[in-house]
């Protein structure tokens, strides 16, 4: 059975290691915060200018002057810090953030990512996505393996406008966990009950399968 959004987030949470500074994008990546294992200390960066993002506030603690990059009201934690947008992107561009987790519309087998624009549709803007993908030390993408019409989103080459080149390291989809290598998408794990053949069919780019592929453990 394919993984749902929460299960994708839960699997990605396994990649988060103690002591990391992590930037979470909007959508499934935001859910990752709910599954970070106990005993693992991470600091969440919100690119509008906060390190140490806490949970949503209780009603009486809502503060219009404290939001995350998705414009949601949030809280700080003991040890949090607040800074300007230029300091924030200095952290990102200067490769001080250890891990970036974000969504994508397409990923190519070379690790190119497209996630900001669909030609002919309203352009909302790239926000911080281009800065993040150009400088992150490690990028994990959370996405559906195929589009609604069944076409693959893991491609030889992206068809949509690019957000960044050769930057994605790992992809967790509803069907599989894959690593981007010099030779293509290397299959690491498959969703419970999903066969290698299913994944092959859903992957347009080069898929590398070596040995037995274990199921995702959640």
């Amino acid at each position: 059975m394919a993984l749902d959004k929460n299960q994708i987030a839960k699997r990605i949470a396994q990649e988060v290691k103690n002591g990391m500074y992590v930037n979470l994008g909007i959508g499934i990546p935001t859910l990752v915060a709910n599954y970070i294992p106990h005993g693992i200390e991470v600091v969440l960066q919100s690119e509008n200018g906060l390190l140490g993002m806490g949970p949503f506030p209780t009603e009486d603690k809502v503060d219009a002057d404290l939001i995350n990059a998705g414009k949601q009201t949030i809280t700080t934690l003991p040890g949090s810090s607040i800074f300007s947008s230029s300091d924030s992107f200095g952290m990102i561009r200067g490769e001080h953030v250890d891990l970036t987790i974000l969504g994508a519309m397409e990923v190519s087998e070379e690790g190119d990512i497209a996630n900001w624009k669909i030609p002919g549709k309203m352009v909302k803007g790239m926000g911080g996505a281009m800065d993040l993908v150009a400088s992150a030390k490690n990028i994990i993408v959370a996405m559906q393996h195929t589009a609604r019409d069944g076409s693959s989103k893991l491609l030889k080459e992206c068809t949509l406008p690019i957000t960044g080149l050769k930057c994605v390291k790992k992809i967790v989809t509803d069907l599989a966990v894959l690593e981007v290598t010099d030779k293509g998408f290397k299959l690491l794990e498959r969703a419970p009950g999903v066969t290698v053949e299913d994944i092959q069919k859903a992957t347009e780019g080069t898929l590398i399968v070596e040995g037995d592929i274990p199921e995702v453990q959640l």
Partner: peptide, 19 residues
């Protein structure tokens, strides 16, 4: 306004804009 051409828009990556 954007689609009708009344408004001109230049989109910058956020960190690039800040810098």
């Amino acid at each position: 306004q954007l689609l009708s051409g009344e408004l001109e828009v230049e989109l910058n990556p956020q960190g690039t804009l800040a810098e």
